[in-house]
Simulated scan of single mutants.
Amino acid sequence: MFNFNGELLEDNTSFLNENNRGVQLGDAVFEELRVLNGDIIFLEDHYLRLMSSMRILRMEIPMNFTMEFMEKEILKCITENDLKEAKQIKFNVFRNSQNDFSISDNTISYFITSKTLKNPFFILNEDSYEVELFKDFYKNSSMLSNLDSNNKVLNVVGAIYAQENDYQDCLLLNERKQVIEALNGNLFVVKGSQIKTAPVTDGCTNSILRKKLVDIINKLNDFEFLEDSISPFELQKADELFIVNNIDGIVSVTKYRKKKFVNAIAKNLIGKLNAAARMSLTKSV
């Protein structure tokens, strides 16, 4: 079952027409969330990010689109039988105008899908995970690049390149050839006692898990945190590279070119990330 504008529909039900702007023009944004036992992890952060994304795209936000409304509409997708399972939720919002560049209708519609997750909380993926730079196309360092929008063609082409070359992921560059993120999430670079990630002004996705991990690292006394541009030359000098996203948690990079990496810091951070997730559930009760 999925939720379309408050109505529950069976999977594979046709509900979009050929003029849908999300399909035709990519005029849509989304937020991915985790639900555990009927509670939404980091709900307030996800809500505020979705509202910010809609404002940046100048969508008309309905008066009833509160955090409580978002929570209620998400939980409609979860039946009593599903409450014990961890769920991945995707909350999509698109503009209602027809598929041209003249905006006759700035109102929005939404649909919400869910699927079961194998792990209730975030995990550390320690499988072999080799990455390479994706240099065919660049991601612009603009505010639009910070959003999760339906325009993911760069990620799709990059994923095909990775598959063709037996990489598990690729690292994206901006137009200044700075490393900004992976196809599959935000990148963190560890060198000695320094932990670094690209600033949002370089064009990386401003994800909630990135925000939470930055908050956690800033509180660690033994490490210096930097939000600064990352040069490709830094990657092979690093002790550790890891990627964070809302579905997998933390993914340790094991190899980049001839360099192999450890994952000690990632192991330390995954427990703290889960503690923050549990705390967000406690606050929402």
Rank of each mutant, 00 (worst) to 15 (best):
residue 116 T to L: 10
residue 9 L to T: 03
residue 111 F to Y: 15
residue 3 N to H: 00
residue 163 Q to G: 10
residue 177 K to P: 04
residue 28 A to M: 15
residue 162 A to S: 15
residue 132 E to A: 12
residue 102 S to N: 11
residue 119 N to P: 00
residue 28 A to G: 13
residue 52 S to Y: 14
residue 48 L to M: 08
residue 6 G to R: 02
residue 278 R to S: 00
residue 7 E to K: 12
residue 239 D to H: 09
residue 228 D to Q: 13
residue 164 E to C: 13
residue 19 N to V: 14
residue 82 D to M: 03
residue 226 L to V: 00
residue 224 E to T: 14
residue 253 V to I: 09
residue 8 L to S: 02
residue 7 E to V: 03
residue 248 D to R: 09
residue 154 L to H: 06
residue 100 D to L: 10
residue 283 K to I: 04
residue 78 I to T: 05
residue 128 S to W: 07
residue 2 F to D: 00
residue 282 T to F: 07
residue 34 R to C: 02
residue 159 A to E: 11
residue 177 K to A: 12
residue 67 M to C: 07
residue 6 G to Y: 00
residue 58 R to P: 11
residue 25 L to S: 13
residue 213 L to K: 09
residue 185 G to W: 11
residue 133 L to S: 07
residue 110 Y to R: 00
residue 134 F to R: 04
residue 123 I to L: 11
residue 158 G to H: 08
residue 37 N to Q: 10
residue 229 S to H: 10
residue 67 M to Y: 05
residue 85 E to V: 02
residue 44 E to T: 05
residue 257 R to A: 06
residue 51 M to N: 09
residue 179 V to K: 04
residue 77 C to P: 03
residue 91 F to I: 01
residue 80 E to T: 06
residue 1 M to R: 03
residue 222 D to S: 14
residue 249 G to D: 13
residue 96 N to G: 06
residue 86 A to T: 05
residue 191 K to M: 12
residue 220 L to F: 14
residue 211 K to R: 11
residue 141 S to T: 00
residue 119 N to C: 04
residue 194 Q to S: 08
residue 129 Y to M: 10
residue 10 E to S: 14
residue 197 T to K: 13
residue 233 F to Q: 07
residue 202 D to L: 02
residue 247 I to Q: 09
residue 6 G to D: 06
residue 236 Q to K: 13
residue 219 K to R: 14
residue 266 A to Y: 13
residue 15 F to Q: 02
residue 193 S to D: 14
residue 94 F to I: 05
residue 208 I to Q: 09
residue 237 K to C: 01
residue 280 S to I: 06
residue 279 M to P: 00
residue 133 L to F: 12
residue 59 M to T: 09
residue 246 N to P: 02
residue 48 L to A: 01
